[in-house]
């Protein structure tokens, strides 16, 4: 407290202060204004979202029927045919990409969180390597997907002569989702309380037993969430696969076959044909799939919370 103030001055200053009652009124008012503002913003965001989704679903619904789903695209300026092969190709690509990216990403995440600290006091080179890898993951997570596409085109398609193929696309897609999987894995592992590790090690379990016995089971829903997010990324990606998967609408016969995913199909229908209604129909299917995926994520993470709280 400022002791140089005379008592009169202090008294005068205090008189200028609002009374507690006025003050409470003011505070309540500013609270109301802020609350109203955020409420409005939220409302607008949701309205826009519903508008887009609603528009696509409503316009696309007319072209969706069993035939649309079960016949292959026939090409042409009018975008003949359905989308059956693109659904299958999407599934192939998702499976292939995840089979490559998940073990790598989860493994890297486990290493970064559970083991990298230990290596730190061993070797200068190892330490440098870990630091570089960490930075690399950070950077890759922010890179636009077309860069992955160009990289895949340059390395897999051209240099390694894999051509436009499921293999090239899967490898490129894996590069794209790897940072996502690593980071969500890291986050899931970091969310596992340290006390679990200490308890397990304190019982005489080895590090590896601790990782497999306690940490991974606890973090699994989080890790799965990351993988499901990656699936979403692959399903909705166009740029990368445009330059690595080619665009054949035939059913892929093997890993070296070219193909066309749902998202690519939407892009091609919209840019190269007049079948805008079919593009919307395919989009509607895509949106439904994405919504289902998000539901799946919600359910797993809710399970995760339940498990942690023991209900």
């Amino acid at each position: 407290m400022n002791t140089s103030l005379t008592n009169e001055k202090r008294f005068a200053l205090r008189k200028k202060q609002p009374t507690p009652k006025q003050n409470l009124k003011r505070r309540k008012l500013s609270q109301k204004i802020a609350f109203g503002f955020f409420w409005l913003m939220g409302l607008i965001a949701i309205a826009v979202l519903f508008w887009i989704v609603g528009y696509v679903l409503a316009k696309g619904a007319s072209s969706i029927n069993l035939e649309f789903l079960t016949t292959r695209p026939a090409g042409g300026f009018d975008g003949e045919g359905g989308i059956s092969t693109t659904i299958v190709t999407t599934i192939y690509l998702v499976l292939f990409t995840i089979v490559i990216a998940a073990p790598l990403g989860v493994g890297a995440g486990i290493y970064f969180v559970e083991y990298a600290n230990e290596a730190q006091n061993h070797n200068k080179f190892v330490r440098w390597l870990i630091k570089t890898a960490r930075t690399g993951v950070e950077i890759l997570a922010g890179v636009p997907s077309i860069i992955f596409g160009l990289f895949g085109f340059a390395v897999f398609v051209s240099y390694m002569k894999l051509g436009f193929s499921l293999l090239s696309a899967g490898l490129s897609g894996a590069c794209m989702v790897l940072p996502v999987i690593i980071r969500t894995t890291e986050e899931a592992l970091l969310a596992v309380p340290d006390s679990y590790r200490q308890a397990s090690l304190g019982l005489g379990a080895t590090k590896w037993q601790t990782v497999t016995g306690v940490i991974l089971p606890t973090a699994l829903p989080g890790i799965v969430t990351g993988i499901v997010l990656s699936v979403g990324r692959i399903i909705s990606e166009t740029a990368v696969f445009w330059v690595t998967l080619g665009g054949s609408y035939r059913l892929p016969q093997n890993l070296m076959s070219s193909g066309r995913t749902l998202a690519l199909h939407v892009y091609m229908l919209a840019t190269e044909t007049r079948a805008f209604d079919k593009a919307l129909g395919t989009s509607a299917i895509l949106i439904i799939i994405i919504i289902l995926l998000n539901l799946a994520i919600n359910i797993t993470s809710r399970r995760f919370q339940k498990r942690l709280s023991g209900k």
């Binding site: 308890a199 304190g202 019982l203």
Partner: peptide, 18 residues
């Protein structure tokens, strides 16, 4: 690992596994 089998530990906050 052998040592920690012989010397158990209980922590400040209860920390049962999930």
């Amino acid at each position: 690992v052998e040592l920690r089998k012989t010397v158990g530990m209980v922590f400040q906050r209860p920390n049962p596994f999930p």
